[in-house]
């Protein structure tokens, strides 16, 4: 559930905005890493490799944003932190399922990109600094690009039934 805490969008500086964007990408990257691991541990390899792919994407975006931040502001101290954002672009935990199909994994990722897009759309009206506005608009549009990327991947999949755990072993009691 996308949430922010203590962010004053009206007075967000460009530096803070860039930092926030980086944190959003970091959060998403971490979540995809977690999902990758979950899928690997639960014998769901296709979803695992897709989530790993998503993680790499998020890292790439993160790196680009980080580079821009460094260029513009060097190592000036950061005044926004991870605690201010929650699940902006990271897929919700309940999106993951053991034995989920690649299609389900992609759908989960698509939902996250949609969620992120909505976040930037919602934030934009409050922003006053034109540079920040421009950045957020850019990020918003990028989310559309990400959505397209995921949709393209989805299109590559043969239309399939989601079999879930129909053929899987019973869970194990401990």
């Amino acid at each position: 559930m996308t949430t922010t805490r203590g962010i004053d969008f009206a007075h967000l500086s460009l530096k803070d905005a860039l930092d926030l964007a980086v944190l959003v990408e970091e959060e998403a990257q971490e979540r995809y890493d977690e999902f990758t691991h979950q899928m690997k541990t639960h014998d769901t390899p296709e979803a695992a490799s897709f989530f790993a792919f998503m993680s790499r994407n998020e890292k790439k975006h993160g790196d680009e944003l980080r580079a821009r931040r460094l260029e513009l502001f060097g190592d000036a101290p950061r005044s926004v932190e991870r605690a201010m954002i929650f699940d902006i672009e990271a897929p919700d935990y309940d999106q993951a399922r053991a034995f989920m199909s690649a299609r389900q994994a992609l759908t989960a990722a698509l939902a996250s990109e949609t969620k992120a897009h909505a976040f930037f759309v919602a934030a934009l009206p409050a922003i006053q600094d034109p540079k920040v506005k421009a950045l957020f608009a850019e990020l918003r549009d990028e989310e559309i690009e990400h959505q397209k990327l995921v949709q393209a991947e989805l299109a590559k999949l043969p239309p399939s039934e989601d079999l879930g755990d129909a053929f899987a072993d019973e869970p194990v009691a401990h």
Binding site: E34, F35, H37, Q38, M39, T41, H42, T44, A83, F86, Y93, D94, Q95, A96, R97, A98, M100, P171
Partner: peptide
């Protein structure tokens, strides 16, 4: 790494606890 079932509510509890 947690070995909870993917989708288990406990992942979120853990995340909130870190926060």
């Amino acid at each position: 790494k947690p070995i909870w079932c993917p989708g288990c509510g406990d992942f979120g509890v853990l995340q909130s606890l870190y926060r």
